[in-house]
């Protein structure tokens, strides 16, 4: 069978589908001061999994606000810098109107994912961390 570390080189999704791959990628991103990109990506996926229903509306609102405050609000943060102004306004609007939709972070997640695919992921595959691991 193909060793997991070779699968990680196939696509960003193959890497993010494996716990060891995620851990190694996170170590690399931490060195680059960019671990928030990965945390935000998973936070968006986790948020989308929370089904809207009466019993967890408060939790969803709290979580949406926490994601917004940590990653989007600070314009100097790496996630905020990789997210388009229109996307940030849309999220801010959803929070202000308490319109908490499972897909409200989807566009921001896509923008951050594109940045990882074009930039940090190829750099990771060439990094000492990955090469030493293989």
């Amino acid at each position: 069978p193909t060793p997991p570390y070779l699968k990680w080189a196939e696509s960003l999704h193959s890497l993010l589908d494996d716990q060891d791959g995620i851990n190694l990628f996170r170590t690399f991103l931490k060195q680059e001061d960019s671990a928030d990109l990965l945390d935000f990506w998973f936070a968006c996926s986790g948020f989308r999994k929370l089904e809207p229903c009466d019993s967890n509306e408060e939790k969803r609102l709290k979580l949406a606000k926490a994601i917004y405050r940590k990653y989007i609000l600070d314009n100097n943060g790496i996630v905020s810098r990789q997210t388009k102004p229109a996307t940030k306004s849309f999220i801010k609007d959803c929070i202000m109107k308490q319109h908490i939709d499972p897909a409200m972070f989807d566009q921001a997640q896509t923008e951050v994912q594109s940045m990882m695919e074009d930039n940090t992921y190829p750099l990771f595959l060439k990094s000492d961390i990955y090469l030493e691991y293989t």
């Binding site: 993010l16 986790g46 948020f47």
Partner: peptide
């Protein structure tokens, strides 16, 4: 805001693939 951080960590963990 510790409760924010807890909430975020649990959310991130829920989206991670389960270990084989």
């Amino acid at each position: 805001l510790n409760s924010d951080e807890d909430l975020l960590q649990r959310c991130i963990g829920s989206a991670m693939p389960k270990r084989q």
